[in-house]
Design a binder for these strands. Structure first.
Lengths: 210, 210
DNA sequence: TCCTGTGAAATACTTCACAGCT
DNA sequence: AGCTGTGAAGTATTTCACAGGA
């Protein structure tokens, strides 16, 4: 194993992981690439090829043992440990994320939340107290935070990201509608509904003129 | 023009569009693929190639006229008109989206909001009254809704999406953490922070063992 | 028989490199 | 001198198709 894995493959692994977790809940013990592919609208060959980058996990003639493949993917993706997260920006979006409750069960623990609005600082959000964004660096260091989530207005986003970079955080989930500039060893995943909608309209437009 | 445009290209166009809009606000009149690329961490050749699928928009020796290219992209992406949006699911996330205020300026008008929780139905959110999700089909037809945003719990999501499909909606922005099954003429864009975080951890993990 | 794992083939996408215009 | 537009070259990714094990 362990040559250079294509990035597209890494993007699909969590999809497999989630579906396998569902299958396990449904008490399915064995699944074929065929069946997994049907649930994800991905070709079976693609799934087999993707998995083959990491090893041989299946049984010929049967398929994959759900629990076992789940364990393998957990390890491959690094989900067999806890990840410590800092959230920057406690507006509606930030609160929605905290409230969502889908992060902790997957091992993502938001340990600290920050904002630049003096009226919010000191306020409690669940178990956490909103801190001044200026304390970001100190808290990241003290608590050993691994991942930053940026949910601040666009005008502040690059500054916050620069700060996270200087804190040696290497992974950022960015909700701000900007194109962040970061060093090449950083991983940034951008989530922007407007960009998503704009790709959708391209296709809608071409529907009416086929 | 108008062969078959690669999907990756369509995913980048909104990025160009947004950056050009910013450049226009900054009163920049001309931009080269070089400069645009620097802001987006995309190679100049890529940008030129992407644009070349749609026509010739630049001037040799100078670059691209910002306003003009912006107009072209607006037309290409179908952003020169209004799009009517229905939001299904008015939890924290749905409210955060409505409150965000970034959709309307880009021509995405949320005309109707739905929920299945009887306690929420009739409640006002901004200018809109939350409707029973059972009225989705009727409202979509009456108001000519083009796009659905799904922000319901995962257990309800596929049913909501099936409903949107049967309403002949062709584009969905899905926030529910599921892998929706839809007919092939549908466009679904999925936004899922957990999947995003799980791709990030893959890379973080490999950082400590280089 | 059914399904995996995988080279090889096919396809898709990116980058190069340069002719040609300003 | 500088930059676009673009075939051609180079990579990357997907799909095929089949040997081989259960």
């Amino acid at each position: 194993m362990a040559a250079l894995i294509p990035e597209v493959v890494i993007l699909r692994l969590p999809l497999y992981f989630r579906t396998l977790a569902l299958l396990k809940e449904e008490k399915t013990e064995i699944v074929s690439s065929q069946e997994l592919g049907a649930r994800l609208q991905i070709t079976p060959a693609q799934i087999r090829k993707d998995l083959s980058y990491f090893g041989k996990f299946g049984t010929q003639g049967k398929g994959y043992n759900v629990s076992q493949l789940l364990d393998e993917l957990r390890q491959i993706l690094g989900l067999d440990r806890k990840w410590l997260v800092a959230l920057v920006g406690v507006g509606r979006l930030g609160r929605a994320l905290l409230d969502y409750g889908g992060l902790a069960p997957q091992g993502f623990h938001v340990l600290a939340v920050f904002d630049s609005d003096p009226r919010k600082i000191g306020e409690k959000v669940g178990e956490l107290v909103i801190q001044d964004v200026h304390k970001l660096a100190a808290t990241v260091k003290n608590q050993g935070i691994n991942i930053g989530i940026v949910a601040v207005p666009p005008s502040e986003a690059q500054a916050v990201i620069d700060c996270l970079v200087s804190c040696r955080i290497k992974a950022i989930l960015n909700y701000a509608p900007i194109a962040p500039v970061v060093p090449s060893d950083m991983r940034v995943y951008n989530i922007d509904p407007v960009l998503a909608l704009q790709t959708l309209t391209y296709h809608l437009k071409s529907l009416n003129t086929p």
